Simulated scan of single mutants.
Amino acid sequence: MQYYEDIEIGDVREFGEYNVTAEEIVEFAEQYDPQPFHTDADAAEDSAFGELVASGWHTASMCMRMLVDGPIDERASMGARGVDELRWKRPVKPGDTLSVRTEIVDKRISESDPRRGYVDSRVEGYNQDGDIVVSFVALAMIERRDPDQ
């Protein structure tokens, strides 16, 4: 288990492989972001994208899944305070394969609760061509091994 004290600013990790399907794009969009270019391949042809594309929220969710299966599962996670700077850089299409890169950009001990530390990570989701499709700063809370130090 990795605790706050084990994490260093500048740490970089690359991980994950998530295969995107048209069926999943449509299913997510029908429930959470029902715009035609996410739900209907024919209608999407007449959109600015020219084809069916994943919702940005879906893209962020796919990256979140890889985060949970990767570093979050290995850390003494206490949840998150949110995200900053969320940007959808490129559309995600059926057949894309996504992966994630994280870099620790800041860390500090909580002033209100010394049992936890705040760890901020720049997260970038990539497609199979190495293009960044989404980026954000994740604001995690990580348990401290020894809050008395």
Rank of each mutant, 00 (worst) to 15 (best):
F136S: 01
I132F: 03
V119C: 12
A41Y: 03
L139I: 13
E30I: 03
F28G: 06
M78K: 12
R65N: 13
E23K: 14
M78L: 15
R122W: 08
M64S: 14
D69M: 08
I109A: 15
P91M: 09
P94W: 11
H38Y: 10
Q2K: 15
M66A: 01
R90Q: 12
G95N: 06
G16A: 03
V105K: 06
V134S: 03
M64F: 10
G56A: 09
A76M: 11
A44L: 02
V137N: 10
R13D: 05
R115Y: 11
E124N: 03
C63Q: 04
R13S: 07
E5V: 10
E45G: 03
D84W: 07
E124R: 12
D84G: 04
K93F: 07
Y3S: 14
G16Y: 01
D42A: 11
S47C: 05
D148S: 15
D73N: 10
A138C: 03
T102M: 01
H38L: 04
W88Q: 08
G10A: 09
Y126L: 03
D106Q: 10
Y126T: 02
V137E: 06
E45W: 05
I132T: 14
D46C: 07
V119Y: 08
S47F: 06
A43K: 11
C63V: 13
Y4D: 00
V12C: 08
V92Q: 02
A44I: 04
G56N: 08
P147L: 13
R115W: 14
V53M: 00
E27R: 15
S47R: 01
D69S: 15
D69N: 15
D46H: 14
G82R: 07
D148A: 15
I25N: 02
D146V: 11
K107L: 02
I25Y: 04
Q128N: 09
V105L: 08
A29C: 06
V105H: 14
Y4I: 01
S112I: 08
R90T: 03
D69V: 05
N127W: 02
A44N: 02
L67G: 03
Q2M: 13
V134R: 01
V53T: 06
S135P: 00
E124W: 09
R108I: 03
I25F: 12
D148I: 07
V119H: 06
E111F: 13
G70N: 02
G10N: 11
S121T: 06
A43M: 11
R13P: 00
Q31G: 06
E74T: 12
P71S: 04
V26F: 12
V83P: 01
E74I: 04
M64T: 07
E51W: 04
A43Q: 14
N127C: 10
L86A: 08
S99M: 05
V123K: 02
G16P: 06
S55G: 06
Q149I: 13
A140L: 14
V68T: 15
D6K: 05
S47E: 07
E51L: 06
N127F: 09
A140Y: 05
R144N: 13
L52S: 08
D131P: 10
L98K: 00
F49N: 09
D120P: 02
Q2E: 13
S47P: 03
Y4T: 04
R122S: 07
